[in-house]
Amino acid sequence: MPEIESLSDISRLISDIQHKKFTRSYDIALRTEELLQELISKGHWKSAKELMNLVKTRIQLVRENLPQEATAPNIMRHILKVIREEYQSASKKKDEGQSLHELVTSTPSNVLDYSDSLINLRSSILDHLTEYKVELESSSDNIAAQALEHIHTNEIILTVGKSNTVEKFLKRAAKDRIFNVIVVEGAPLYAGHTMAASLAKSNIQTTVIADSAVFAMMSRVNKVIIGTHTVLANGGLRAASGIHAVALAAKHYSVPVMVLSHMYKFCPIYVGSHNHEAFNVCASPANVIPYAFGPILDKIEVNNPVYDYVPPELVTLFISHQGGNSPSYVYRLLSELYHQDDYDI
C-alpha cells in the first residue's frame, strides 16, 4: 500500500525522537521542516486539500506516538497554514475571519475547500518554506540579539538547568555587559553543570547552586531567565521539573521571569494541571535513587517526573525572535502561527 510507504519518513522521525537521537528541540524542528519540504516537492498530491490531508495524518501519527512532543506537530501545523495562505493567494479567494468586523459578526459565508488544483502552488509553497527554514535557523540568533535590551550591568541572573537558547542569550549579553549568573544544577539530570562550565568559559561570573538553595538565593536575584519545553495556549509552560518552584520563589520576591522560546514551541493546547495524563512523563527512578540502594527499594515508590506545569501568572515575559510578549498575548501569537481549524489535530 502506498499509504504506508509514504509514512515511513515520519515513522523514522518518531523513532529517532523516541530513541533520543534528537534531544534538542531545534534539531527536531529542522528535521520536521526538511521532511515536509521533501513531502511537498516529491509527494503525490494534486490539490492543496490532498496535501493538507497528508500533513494532517502525520501530525496525528506523531501525537499518537509522542503525546508530549510539541515541536514536530507545531512545525507541521504552521506549514498547514502556509499551504492555506499560498492556496488563497494563488486562487485569489479570501478566507473568513480576517477583519475585526468579521471577527465580531462572525458569519461564515464563503468556506474554502482547497480542492482546486493550481499550477503554481507547489513552487510557491516551497518558496515560502525556504523562507521559513531561514527563519528557523536564525531564530536563536535573533533571540540572543535582544539580550542587551533585557540585561543591565551588574545584574544577578538565575537560570535552571541547560538551554541552548539561554546559553546563547547570556553569552551574547556578556560581550557588552558584566553580570553574574546563578545556575541551578537541576537534579537529577544535573544539566546545570554543563551550562555553568560553558558560561564560565565565556568569562561570565557563574555560581552553581543546588536545587534546594533557590529560595534562599532568589531574594538577591534580579531576573530569572529560563528556556522551556513548550508554551501552552494559555501562556503557561511545560518546562523541566523544578521550574514551578523556581517561578513561585520568583513570584514571592517579585523577580521577573523571562522565558526564551522559539516560535515553534508555542503550542495551541490547553493543559490545566500537572497530573493531566498527556502532560507529564516519569523518567527512570535510577537517577534519583541508585539500584544499589539495597533491599529497601522493593518497599518504596520513587517518582521522577520530567516536566512541570508553570501557570501563566508566574511568567512575566516570553521572548521569541519577534520580540517580547506577555503571556496574555500568546493566544494572538498562536492565531498568527496556525490556522484556527488546525488547532485540534
Binding site: P188, D211, S212, G242, A245, I289, I300, N304
Partner: peptide, 9 residues
C-alpha cells in the same frame, strides 16, 4: 521518595 524538583508534581 522524590527529589526536590518533583515536589510540585
Amino acid at each position: 521518595y522524590i527529589f526536590l524538583n518533583a515536589v510540585s508534581y
